[in-house]
C-alpha cells in the first residue's frame, strides 16, 4: 500500500478488551435511565439500575478500568448524551446539585476494584467472602453518600443535617436493596471476568 504506515501505533490487544468493556458498561449505565425503574414498598424513590452498574464496574473491571468506565459515563453525559438521571445532560450537571454523587461513582468503583484486586489473584469478585463483599459495597455506598451530601450542602448552602435529610435518607432503602442484588449477582457467578 502506498500509505505512510510506519508510524501507526496499534493499541495493545490487552488494552482493547477492557477498554471495550468499559465503554459498553458506560453505555449500559446510560441506558438504565431510559428503562423504567422498579418501585419499592414504603419508599417514594424507585430503584434504578444506575448505581448497580457502578458497583459491577468496580467488581468486574477492576480499579482502573472500572473508574475509567464511570469517568467516560460522566464525560459522555457532560457533552450532551441524555444519560444522567431523568435523561438530563450537560457539563452543568457535573457541578450542579447532584455533582457530588456523580463524581463519587468513579471513586466508588476504584475503591471496590482495589479490594477485589487485592483479595483475588485473577480479579474474580466471586473469590470474596460474603461479609467482605457486603462491607466493601457498604463502604462504597458511604463514599457516595459522603461526597454527594457534602457537595449538595455546599452548593445549595444547606447545613449538614439538612443535606443528609434531603440527599441521603430517602435513598437508603433502595440502596440497601441494590447492594443485596449485587451480592446475588456476584454469588451467581454468571458474569465472566
Amino acid at each position: 500500500m502506498a500509505t505512510d504506515q510506519h508510524s501507526v501505533e496499534l493499541v495493545d490487544d490487552d488494552v482493547v478488551k477492557p477498554f471495550a468493556r468499559a465503554a459498553v458498561l458506560a453505555a449500559l449505565m446510560g441506558a438504565a435511565v431510559f428503562v423504567g425503574s422498579i418501585p419499592i414498598p414504603f419508599s417514594p424513590i424507585p430503584i434504578s439500575l444506575g448505581v448497580i452498574v457502578v458497583y459491577l464496574a468496580g467488581l468486574y473491571l477492576g480499579p482502573y478500568w472500572g473508574a475509567f468506565s464511570l469517568l467516560l459515563y460522566l464525560t459522555a453525559g457532560a457533552v450532551g448524551l441524555p444519560i444522567f438521571a431523568e435523561r438530563a445532560s450537560g457539563l452543568g450537571v457535573l457541578v450542579g446539585n447532584s455533582a457530588g454523587y456523580l463524581w463519587s461513582y468513579p471513586t466508588a468503583a476504584l475503591l471496590i476494584g482495589a479490594v477485589v484486586h487485592r483479595l483475588s489473584e485473577d480479579g474474580d469478585p466471586a473469590d470474596l467472602s460474603r461479609p467482605v463483599l457486603v462491607v466493601t459495597l457498604l463502604a462504597a455506598l458511604t463514599v457516595i453518600y459522603l461526597l454527594g451530601a457534602a457537595w449538595l450542602g455546599y452548593v445549595l448552602e444547606l447545613s449538614t443535617v439538612k443535606a443528609i435529610e434531603i440527599g441521603v435518607v430517602p435513598f437508603i432503602p433502595g440502596d440497601l436493596i441494590k447492594i443485596a442484588a449485587v451480592v446475588a449477582i456476584v454469588e451467581a457467578e454468571r458474569i465472566a471476568t
Binding site: K17, R21, L25, I47, L49, A180, V182, A184, R190, A192
Partner: peptide
C-alpha cells in the same frame, strides 16, 4: 421480589453488555 428482579436485570444486562463488548474489541 424486588431484590430478585433487580439482580436478574443487572446480571443479564451486564452479561449481555460484555458479550457485545468482546465482539466489539
Amino acid at each position: 421480589g424486588v431484590v430478585d428482579r433487580a439482580s436478574t436485570i443487572g446480571m443479564l444486562g451486564v452479561a449481555r453488555a460484555f458479550d457485545r463488548a468482546d465482539r466489539l474489541s
